[in-house]
Design a protein around this nucleic acid. Structure first.
Length: 418
RNA sequence: GUGAUUGUAGCUCAGUUGGUUAGAGCGCCUGGUUGUGGCCCAGGAGGUCGGGGGUUCGAGUCCCCUCAUUCACCCCA
């Protein structure tokens, strides 16, 4: 095979598949406005600092997965590895910092330099939503509600909604201390990664996949109890609101998200169908996000869904394929004059929103009919010298095998009737 | 970045212990019908066997390197 393959971790999406993607996009455009959200489109690259500062210099994503390059002016730019930081950068041009709420959603490609696997690409696509500028448990619960609404609308059932709280920054220290003491006492039995994590990023130990670590994690102290009263009440209230909304969830104290900016409520929906261990199809939480030169963070709550993963799950659940586009009317011509007439006819029909394909090559009737079959045409129009002279066209029904002579101007009403 | 896996026609795949001109099915083209598709019949086009090097009289087949696929790990959506 010649090297026409796209670069690793990228893919071409052909029309058959594109209809599935379009349905995801259309569903977002239908559901999110019901909650007052409009679409925001931000650049695919940003100044590198936006992500370094926004996501956190220490995170895995920033440290080793970003596509960073210099432009001709020597500026350091980065292809966005996630959506939130760029959206915050854009919204700082509004008055979100004064507590004026903004509600936006976004759709588009993201880029991370990872090794591809099931449900993981280097260019992948997310649909995300952000509620920015306000903090309240009601907001968090409503954002989660809109997320569940969205995936239900896609026919995705059987996912598990996991919920946890990260507290606020002040809550983090006592909790970390508690965990560090505990894990230090079990350091002998843990994997190498987790030993390093004790000093570097203790939270990640909680979602280590190694069997021996999981055993230890299970016995870990309930660090949430060390959070402030307010933080605990905030989370309780979010849970109450979800109960009230009839949304079922599981509290998972070991759910910690990989980006530094999260506070309070964090959540994800995991699904086993169609995916390996990359089982999170949508995830998010409340955040406090700093951008370069900011003393105060932007606050908000949001989530992002992986489009590739949504599609894998939909297909594993046998969600019905989107309706295919209506096949074109196929115009067959015998001879140059007929072809010119058909080119004109095609233009007329398209002005009236009828999809039409004209065969341009001077091929046999047989070959032209085969071509019509190939594009799935239900009807074909046949025109040669005889029809031209008589001022008519032949319209053939490819399923019934029948055909009729019509005046060209009657074609549309004939097609509409059948 | 680590590990495993696979790479032969547009697609899905055969190809025996290394042995002449590399195969099948589907798809495509032409004909069997002066201007009527699908089914059938006949013929045809299409391949640097992922790429490079090596062993051998001889390599799709064995060895090394490399690129790519898929999956797992790490991490994340």
């Amino acid at each position: 095979m010649a090297n026409f393959a796209p670069p690793p971790g990228t893919a071409d999406i052909f029309p058959d598949e594109t209809v599935w993607w379009q349905r995801l996009e259309q569903t977002a455009a239908k559901v999110f406005p019901l909650y007052g959200y409009g679409e925001l489109r931000t650049p695919i690259f940003e100044y590198t600092e936006v992500f370094k500062r926004g996501i956190g210099d220490e995170t895995e994503v920033v440290q080793k997965e970003m596509y960073t390059f210099e432009d001709r002016g020597g500026r350091s730019l980065t292809l966005r590895p996630e959506g939130t930081a760029g959206v915050m950068r854009a919204l700082l041009n509004t008055d979100v910092m004064n507590g004026n709420e903004k509600r936006v959603y976004y759709i588009g490609p993201m880029f991370r330099g990872e090794r591809p696997a099931a449900g993981r690409r280097r260019q992948f696509h997310q649909i995300g939503l952000e509620n920015v500028g306000k903090i309240s448990p009601e907001t968090d619960a409503e954002v989660i509600t809109s997320m569940m609404h969205f995936i239900n609308e896609l026919g995705i059932t059987g996912g598990r909604l996991l919920l946890n709280t990260r507290g606020v920054k002040a809550d983090r220290e006592p909790a970390e201390k508690m965990l560090r003491e505990y894990f230090r006492s079990h350091i002998e039995a843990m994997c190498d990664d987790c030993r390093a994590r004790i000093e570097r990023n203790i939270w990640r130990i909680l979602d280590c996949k190694q069997e021996k670590c999981r055993e230890i994690v299970k016995q870990a102290p309930e660090y949430v109890n060390s959070y402030s009263q307010e933080s605990q009440e905030y989370f309780t209230r979010v849970c109450q609101l979800l109960d009230q909304a009839g949304i079922s969830y599981e509290i998972d104290p070991f759910l910690v998200r990989g980006l530094d900016y999260y506070v309070h409520t964090v959540f994800e929906v995991v699904h086993t169908a169609g995916l390996g261990t990359q089982s999170a199809i949508v995830a998010g939480g409340r955040y406090e996000l700093f951008l370069p030169e900011m003393k105060k963070p932007v606050i908000g709550v949001g989530f992002a869904a992986g489009m590739e993963r949504l599609l894998l799950v939909q297909q594993a659940l046998s969600v019905a394929a989107p309706p295919p586009p209506s096949p074109p009317l196929f115009l067959i011509s015998m001879g140059d004059e007929a072809r010119d007439a058909n080119i004109k006819l095609a233009a007329d029909l398209r002005r009236q929103n009828v999809p039409v394909v004209v065969e341009f090559e001077d091929k046999s009737m047989k070959a032209q009919l085969r071509a019509a079959n190939r594009v799935g045409s239900r009807y074909v129009v046949i025109r040669g010298g005889d029809e031209l002279n008589a001022g008519i066209v032949i319209c053939k029904d490819m399923e019934a095998g029948t055909q009729e002579q019509l005046k060209p101007e009657d074609l549309i009403s004939y097609l509409r009737k059948s």
